[in-house]
Design a protein around this nucleic acid. Sequence first.
DNA 1: GGTAGGATGGGCT
DNA 2: GCCCATCCTACCC
Length: 201
Amino acid sequence: MPPGRILPRSFYARPTVEVARALLGKVLVHGPAAGVIVEAEAYLGDGDEAAHSARGRTARTAVIFGPPGHAYVYLIYGMYHCLNLVAEPDGHPGCVLIRALEPVSGLEEMRARRGAPCRPENLASGPGKLTLAMGITLAHNGVDVTCGPLVVREPAKAEPAPEILVTPRIGITRAAHLPLRFLLAGARIPPARRYNGPSSR
DNA sequence: GGTAGGATGGGCT
DNA sequence: GCCCATCCTACCC
């Protein structure tokens, strides 16, 4: 299972939607734990009222305005963390929320960190679940994901262009209709996380 | 199969 | 104070 090369900064220095789509099928790696990204959402810098960057640069959101290829991690509902990867050129806000992984290695570490008994497909099938399973915390806010302990790699073997499903984003109230959630069509998604509304490619 | 409610803390008005 | 880019449990079909 030797994974491919680490994604370079140029991968992230593009429009956020492009980065979100391109991240599907790539492998998030943290120590022995790794998983294929199967679900992601784009949060835009331009007029996206749902994005944390929408109301300007603050101490918390500064990372989103910084150079691409860095992690934006924040605490949600007082108990879970969410991982984003910063896109767009330096100075332009935009990030991609990583919403689900398909675990490929380090399953035992993930299970130990999750605590709750769960099947492999539920280990990292949500933004809060995957940060817990991967051991990602606020300590990772701002870290460079083109080097260091937390990285994103090409998959071990090159895949054909994946089929991508596009739907509205989940769990937000503002700008809730925008088609900015992207899923790998072949991914195994738990029933409760499926989407039955209209979708496109 | 589905959903309602609660846990829990930082950021911002 | 209020608002969350969530998850799990309990309970009800």
